[in-house]
């Protein structure tokens, strides 16, 4: 057997985590893709309005939240690596660190919403804000959902509920969190930058 065949044989057939979460992830990615394309199509009808209001968004907050989510995703990768090495407590600490960054994301986004609402912005202000608020709030809810999953997995890891041989739950939670990150990586440039 040559080395290529050996490497191929050691590659898993299924993605990390429970297969059901991947079906869910694919469905979620499809929904977000449709929303992103609808945003881009709606922008075609009123490019000047979209460009004008996009410039009023707090790009520094968008940047901060992107860095926060990327870093939290990285922490989750470290949590998975830790449990694969049998380090349950280290796994739990990385997951709580990722959870904390999720909370920071919500705080920053919440401050942005607070600013918009104080300026009288609502869903009915114009088409740009209709899409901006809907898209980002839909993602906001996914961050909350991801944090609930991370907390549940972190608590179980803390109690020694995972091991080197059985840690599907950690990989399942991690995969969902990476999806939340992946979606934001498209959303940020699309809504905050591209004009």
């Amino acid at each position: 057997m040559n080395s290529t065949a050996t490497v191929y044989d050691t590659q898993p057939k299924s993605p990390p985590g429970d297969l059901a979460i991947w079906v869910f992830i694919l469905a979620e990615l499809l929904v977000f893709a449709v929303l992103f394309v609808v945003y881009a199509m709606a922008r075609r009808n009123n490019i000047e309005l979209f460009n004008l209001h996009q410039l009023q968004l707090d790009r520094a907050a968008g940047l901060a939240n992107t860095l926060v989510l990327i870093t939290s995703s990285y922490f989750v990768v470290r949590a998975v690596a830790a449990i694969r090495e049998g380090e349950t407590q280290r796994c739990s600490r990385w997951l709580w660190a990722a959870f904390s960054l999720g909370a920071l994301f919500l705080l920053i986004k919440g401050a942005e919403y607070q600013h918009h609402f104080s300026m009288g912005v609502t869903l009915r202000s114009n088409d740009f804000y209709l899409f901006y608020l809907s898209l980002t709030f839909f993602h906001f809810m996914h961050v909350i959902m991801g944090m609930v999953i991370l907390a549940a997995v972190a608590l179980k890891a803390q109690r020694g509920g995972y091991s080197v041989s059985e840690h599907t739950g950690v990989e399942t939670g991690a995969s969902y969190w990476h999806m939340v990150d992946l979606v934001w990586l498209i959303l940020f440039p699309l809504v905050y930058v591209m004009h």
């Binding site: 590659q11 898993p12 993605p15 990390p16 990285y74 990768v77 990476h178 992946l182």
Partner: peptide
């Protein structure tokens, strides 16, 4: 993210 965080680079199929 797909390759290195989700780990799909090492998954067959």
């Amino acid at each position: 993210v797909v390759d290195h965080f989700m780990g799909l680079r090492r998954v067959r199929g």
